[in-house]
């Protein structure tokens, strides 16, 4: 009948919560803060004498590599130090300053903020179903003339739209503040990455765009996971807790199971899609971008099937 009204109802509910405005404002403030801080503390000496700085860094790296080899640290520790060392050498030779900040470089540096956004998205997705069960409002909603799957789908769409909205806000804010403080332009600025011991020169803007796309896919999978947990548990705090635990403990778990042959078929090693962007350094071996995308598609479908099947059948006693 009026399916879109269901979605707009959910959207209105999301935006009627105070926390939603915090979720929107906080990333903007952090980005603004970092931009100002970076500008104020920028060491102009280092910027002009960057060659000297990088040479010193490499001396330090050399001793660290030697130490890592002596201590029998995991192999990837020494490997990543070596990559960094070689990148520096390449930078010196080709005169590519790592200290040159442009708006696109700023966007690349701010990429880790997306995990904060991931956290906010988890809170919203975990609460959107479980919260209504906990408060009992779900029964007022389910007695309307809509099949249950439509009501659940409207909630899923609203959550995805909210995730997309947060992500657009973050991208826009980083670009805007980066441009204001470090100047517009910089689309042609190169950066270095190492794959299989070889050094590549790439455009930062390419990296940023690819990174944004991949991150949004990660977001979507996170939403599906949290949404499933939200449907399986009646309490929103339990749902939020479980989803956060799975997402963050999942990454730690990857290190423990990385040597197992089945590790690449589990969810979490595949959740970090940006690992394919540079470094070429993967904790779990034998995976590629298309492999991970395939695995994520399978997991997402599984989560959604469970979510919708459970929701459709459940007796509501709230």
């Amino acid at each position: 009948m009026k399916f879109l009204s269901l979605v707009s109802n959910e959207w209105i509910k999301i935006f009627s919560r105070t926390r939603t405005w915090v979720f929107i404002a906080l990333p903007i403030l952090i980005v603004l803060g970092v931009a100002i801080y970076g500008k104020v503390t920028a060491d102009e000496d280092v910027k002009s004498n960057w060659k000297q700085e990088v040479t010193e860094q490499n001396k330090e790296l050399k001793s660290q590599i030697a130490e890592a080899k002596k201590d029998n640290s995991p192999k990837f520790v020494a490997e990543s130090l070596e990559n960094e060392y070689r990148q520096n050498q390449y930078a010196l030779k080709n005169e590519i300053s790592p200290y040159e900040t442009t708006s696109w470089k700023f966007m690349k540096d701010m990429a880790p903020i997306s995990s904060l956004l991931g956290l906010f998205v988890i809170v919203v997705a975990s609460d959107i179903v479980a919260g209504e069960f906990a408060k009992g409002t779900i029964k007022m909603l389910l007695i309307r003339p809509y099949s249950r799957w439509k009501i659940l789908l409207s909630k899923l769409i609203a959550t995805l739209a909210f995730a997309f909205f947060l992500w657009v806000i973050l991208v826009a804010a980083t670009w805007l503040f980066g441009s204001i403080f470090y100047g517009f332009g910089g689309m042609d600025q190169p950066y270095l990455s190492v794959t299989d011991g070889k050094i590549h020169e790439k455009l930062i803007s390419e990296y940023v765009l690819a990174n944004m796309g991949l991150e949004f896919i990660e977001f979507a999978v996170t939403v599906f996971l949290a949404f499933m947990v939200s449907t399986l548990f009646y309490s929103s705090s339990v749902a939020i807790g479980i989803s956060l635990f799975l997402t963050f403990a999942g990454n730690a778990l990857v290190l423990f199971i990385s040597s197992k042959s089945w590790a690449k078929y589990t969810l979490f090693p595949n959740m970090d899609l940006t690992q394919y962007l540079d470094e070429g350094l993967q904790v779990v071996k034998g995976m590629s971008l298309s492999f991970s995308l395939g695995m994520l598609a399978i997991y997402s479908a599984l989560f959604l099937i469970i979510t919708f099947a459970v929701f459709q059948k459940r007796d509501v006693k709230a």
């Binding site: 509910k13 009992g136 409002t137 029964k139 007022m140 007695i143 003339p145 809509y146």
Partner: peptide
């Protein structure tokens, strides 16, 4: 369901 209006136990509103 279009023809039904209901309060089931306490009407929990937002």
């Amino acid at each position: 369901m279009e023809q039904i209006g209901a309060i089931v136990e306490n009407p929990q509103m937002y």
